[in-house]
Amino acid sequence: MRLKRLLSEKKSAVLRRWFDDIVETYPPDTSQFLKKQKNQFANPVGSTILQGIENIFDGLLKGLDKNEISPFLDNIIRIRAVQDFTPPQALSFIFLLKKIIRNEIAKEISDNELSEELLEFESEIDNLALISFDIYMQCREKLYEIKANEVKRMTFRLLQQANLLTEIKDEESDIKEHDFININTKGGS
């Protein structure tokens, strides 16, 4: 594909723009920090985005492989899913790529009649967005699951002591793993 060849030549410019546009979704003081601090441990958000978009872009150029790309999407979305973003804002970074590409290679597209290839490439970006919805929801569901687990952990021993719990003594079922508990209402004190 001519478009993909062109995009790989322009890779660094596209990624720079993409990174800048994403970090500018944060307040100005923050985006400055996200751009400047290069140490990945001092700046996990910036470095995750930087590393993530490069791998995502490479994935798109190679042809979208969900399994390969998902971890990098996950790293970025997992962060944005707990930050002060609405769901569309959290995932908008995917769509930013379309605009950046169009701006970056506008001239080449019209000169070389690449519109059709561009449409196809943009469909792949749309697929990326669909995968992202999935990841975003998993992250949000995980948060609620963690809340529920914390409450369970806090009350488990108390219930056990009050004789309100009996574990099912079955070697086959992995009680520990599944926190499978039976409320023994009759034996309560």
């Binding site: 307040p27 003081d29 923050t30 996200l34 001092a42 996990p44 958000v45 962060i79 930050q83 002060d84």
Partner: peptide, 17 residues
């Protein structure tokens, strides 16, 4: 100190500097 707080680093909210 500005970029040393875990809440600033994680939230990106400047008032957490």
């Amino acid at each position: 100190c500005a970029d040393k707080c875990h809440f600033f680093i994680g939230s990106g909210d400047p008032k957490n500097m």
